[in-house]
């Protein structure tokens, strides 16, 4: 067993884990944060995307022990109290989901795109930047609309944007 200490959604966590524990397993099974999904388990689909030290990563291809001393944010950590994060609200408003399985990863990736590319995102940029996230319902059209609207909303909600 190896000791891992990290901050998840603002809370300090320390645990002894088998070193082969994936970050996504640790989040889901140790911390019961089941909002982060396992889709393909082969770093293709992006359902498992979380933020590791502020950057979007695939938690199915990261060991929990590699996240030692790091800051992790999951889909559960972006709402402010009872208020959805602007990107979550945009996905609801624009029906950016069908079955919802890919949604946590889509939203975590979308926030990362805004952090890197700013709040004015054109369709081409969004589609290119979402290439690491698959929606098996093929609901991309509304996802792209939601990301564009969420990006703009994040500019108008600086307090929530700082929740990272």
């Amino acid at each position: 067993m190896t000791t891992v200490s990290l901050t998840v959604n603002g809370q300090s966590v320390t645990a002894d884990v088998d070193p082969r524990t994936l970050l996504v397993q640790f989040l889901r099974e140790n911390l019961r944060l089941t909002g982060t999904h396992v889709g393909c388990d082969t770093s293709q689909c992006g359902a498992c995307v979380v933020h590791l030290n502020g950057q979007a990563v695939k938690s199915c291809t990261t060991l929990a022990v590699q996240a030692n001393a790091s800051v992790v944010t999951t889909i559960e950590g972006i709402a402010e109290g009872g208020d959805l994060h602007p990107m979550q609200a945009a996905f609801r408003e624009h029906h950016g989901l069908q079955c919802g399985y890919c949604t946590p990863g889509m939203i975590m990736s979308a926030i990362d795109i805004v952090n890197r590319k700013g709040n004015a995102l054109d369709e081409q940029t969004i589609r290119a930047e979402l290439e690491g996230n698959l929606c098996r319902c093929t609901g991309y059209h509304n996802i792209v609309k939601a990301v564009a609207a969420g990006a703009q909303a994040m500019a108008q909600a600086p307090v929530q944007q700082a929740a990272e």
Binding site: S43, V49, L52, A56, V57, K58, T62, E131
Partner: peptide, 9 residues
């Protein structure tokens, strides 16, 4: 290379 998440690791 890869996609944004892959490039972050």
């Amino acid at each position: 290379i890869g996609d944004p998440h892959v490039r972050n690791r």
